[in-house]
Amino acid sequence: MRASAAQKVDPAHATLWARHYPGHDMIGTRTFGFWLYMLTDAMVYAALFASLGVLSHVVNLAGGPSPSAFINPVYAYGETITLFLSVLIYGYSMVALKNGNHSGVIGSMFAAMLLGMVYLVIAGIDIREMFAQGIIPEASGFLSIFFTIIIYHALHIIVGVVWMLVMMIQVAREGFSANVVYRLINLRLFWHFQAVIWVFVFTFVYLQGMVV
């Protein structure tokens, strides 16, 4: 009684019901949830990078090759360029969405998807060359976390590429319905997030590996 009295709302003039309630902002709710999902994924990466920090001691090389001996900066550079370019072009796709331009969305997304595929090819060649030299996850604790991080990141790129393919079909089929628009926005978050994570992968896995 005291608590409610303290809030001084006049019951005679209070609004009691929200008539003709429009419902909740669907796109805002969906994208907010996707931010939350990305927070969980960021925590996964945080745990993986913490493991990398723990497993970067010379003991964890178990007498195997040290990262400076096998990391190829040319591949890492190529991956950086393709991924960032892909994100940029995806941004143009979102500009086309704002202008209501179907073909612009699909065209830019197609280019972004192709660049994502190029990224995967480069990563694949990089990993295959390391495997061919006997640099494999089973060789040491350090290599275990090294490969886990770059393969986990590559898996995200695969998901992104498949997602773009699906979205191109959905834009073509449905146009910019609410479902399609919120998915395009979420995919934008997802794709930018991969570039952000790549900054960390590049810094802590490749650059730091080169130096250590």
Binding site: H20, Y21, P22, G23, K98, F176, S177, A178
Partner: peptide
């Protein structure tokens, strides 16, 4: 009723809660 109102909203609302192209 595709694309007229947000989930959990009433159908007589004069104010659809989202409009993708209005941004």
């Amino acid at each position: 009723r595709p694309g007229t109102d947000g989930i959990g909203g009433g159908t007589t609302s004069t104010n659809p809660s989202w409009a993708p192209m209005d941004r």
